[in-house]
Design a protein around this nucleic acid. Structure first.
Lengths: 96, 96
DNA sequence: TAAAGTAGTTAATATAATTAACCAAATATT
DNA sequence: AATATTTGGTTAATTATATTAACTACTTTA
């Protein structure tokens, strides 16, 4: 009846991050920080986990002399997100 | 942009339980156990948390000589679920 | 009456999320 | 030109959560 929910995505902050990345080509650390209002440390860790899972690409460069971490979603990440949403539907619309 | 997701509901097992209770008048422990496939101990704990939060009613009686735990959703629980779903929509359909 | 099953609970453990403290470099202030 | 502050992070420690293993208490069956 209830599919397992991908534990990588079933975390508020990681879901927020992926949710943002679904809508944009690329986002940097600061944008994620501003948008999610989460603490930088937390974001740093959750980005690592998403990268380890292969859900996002992380490119660290320098921009205007400052470190800049550019993040984008991978195909795997996009698919995982779609799967997660499908599974969730079964929870939130159990009448189906 | 992203509402906080009610941490009481943002747990796979608790969400499963509430999701079941949304569709039925009442469910007992065994039904929840069979439907969710979760371990009894885990269910026991999550039922306590949902009760503490006022999201469910728990009635312990004996049925055919056996202990029987009947569970039903409260108005508060139903509202929390609806709110949770609304918040989730913003995550899973960020284009909106 | 001994073994197996029902219906749970609790304590201990494993896992995950969060925060506090830190680092390195850049820029702003006195 | 020192020093304070800001940017953009990371890491270690803490806190919170979830899960499991072991147990309780009773019932039924062989």
């Amino acid at each position: 009846m209830f599919n397992d929910l991908d534990p990588i995505l079933h975390s508020q902050l990681r879901l927020s991050i992926v949710s943002i990345l679904i809508t944009v080509e690329e986002a940097n650390f600061s944008f994620i920080k501003d948008t999610t209002k989460a603490a930088a440390g937390n974001i740093s860790i959750q980005i690592n986990k998403l990268q380890e899972a292969g859900y996002i690409n992380v490119e660290k460069t320098f921009k205007n002399n400052y470190p800049n971490t550019a993040i984008s979603i991978t195909n795997k990440g996009r698919e995982a997100f779609e799967e997660y949403v499908k599974s969730l539907q079964k929870y939130i619309y159990p009448q189906k």
